[in-house]
Computed example of a mutant assay.
Amino acid sequence: MASGTLKVSTLGGAGIFEANTFEEWQERMSNRFVRLQVSTSRPDNFHALLHGRSFDDISLSRTEPHAHQVDRLQDFICQGEARYYKLSMLLGGAGLVVQDGREAVLGPGDMVIYVTARPYSAVFVDAADSLVMVFPQVALSVSAESVARLTATALSSTSGMGRLVGPFLRELAATLDSISGHGGIMLAHNTLVLVNTMAYTELGAQGADPRTGALAEVKEYIDRNLASSTLGPSTIAAAHYMSTPRLHYLFEGAGTTVPSWIKARRLDRSRRDLMDPALGHATITQIATRWGFPDSAHFSRAFKAPFGATPSEYRRPR
């Protein structure tokens, strides 16, 4: 089979990848997401389009390929690698996602969540148009154990929270190429808030694990008190009438720790303030101090690690 050249262009700040051979698509799928085995029963005259955007640690992609299958094999999963969730919404055509012994048969408007840390398979027919969102596992308020009850379960856009989230995701896919800069970052994070809410309410409808509700309440409390200099495991546990070991247990189930979560949320609030035109008069030091970073040098190092730029670099218009 002949191989061609992957075409890359940018329209409206968005990367568009066109594959004219199946080999090109195989390479792109693993490079864009995680390591995957990609196969098709119709390799001849294969064609696919991928519209991709990345904002911080959130990836948004719209894929329009010919019929193919992707498999996340156990041998491809490395111990200690970052763990991500994938949310896929089928915009057109038909598909199937298999994980954790469940199968989600997808039609237009259906959504599904699956995790990269465990094997899965996804099968798509011709004209299967999908929006795929990839985000860190720790970004959800609900525990990994609870989300495991949702993997490979079709979530309809005609009922429950799906009636709100589904149309939003469809419009997001339609305008993906035009999203960029700070506005794109804010939109990606707001999309994640909606996905988080949908997962939480769906689990509640199923009779969620009590730890899911407890963890969500604790995370809401942390968000409300991020500016407090006394915020820490002992004060959080006391406010929720639980022991400190119990608090740590909740966060271990979500794949993170209490201090790491607090730091990540404070950095995210700082990032939002740096993007906010209404706060253009505030100095970086003032913003850092507001969110619990009294040492400017430490704040700069801590900020650059997840966002790839210093606060001053990040604040410049993109």
Rank of each mutant, 00 (worst) to 15 (best):
L150F: 11
S121C: 13
A139Q: 03
S59C: 08
R102A: 13
S88K: 08
R149Y: 06
V8L: 08
K86R: 05
L73W: 04
R28F: 10
S41T: 12
Y85E: 10
Q74T: 05
H51M: 03
V38W: 06
D129G: 04
R83H: 12
K7G: 02
H66Q: 11
D110L: 07
M133Q: 09
P43T: 14
E24I: 07
I58W: 06
K86H: 14
E145T: 14
L50W: 01
G15Q: 05
L106S: 02
S146E: 15
R72T: 08
N45Y: 14
S141Q: 13
A122H: 10
F135G: 01
N31F: 09
E81A: 14
R149L: 05
F135W: 09
T63F: 07
G12K: 02
R102I: 09
T63K: 00
P108E: 15
L150N: 04
Q99K: 03
D56T: 03
L73M: 06
A104V: 06
V38C: 06
Q79T: 13
S143K: 06
S39H: 07
L60A: 08
A82V: 10
S61C: 03
P136E: 13
L131T: 07
S88W: 05
F76A: 10
G12R: 01
E145P: 00
Q79V: 12
N20A: 09
A122R: 07
D126K: 03
Y85A: 09
L73H: 05
F17G: 00
V98C: 02
G80I: 14
V98E: 14
A14R: 01
M111V: 10
Q26W: 04
C78N: 05
Q99M: 07
S41C: 00
V70Y: 03
S39F: 07
F22C: 04
R28C: 01
E27D: 15
R83K: 11
M133C: 14
S141W: 14
V138D: 03
F135I: 01
G52T: 04
R28M: 13
D129N: 12
Q79F: 13
D126F: 08
D110K: 04
L140I: 10
V112I: 12
A82D: 15
P136T: 09
P119A: 15
T40N: 03
D57N: 15
R62N: 01
L36N: 02
M133I: 15
A14N: 03
L90Q: 08
M89H: 07
G101K: 12
S130L: 10
D110Y: 13
V115M: 09
S88R: 07
G109E: 14
L87V: 13
D71Q: 11
A82R: 10
S54H: 00
T153A: 08
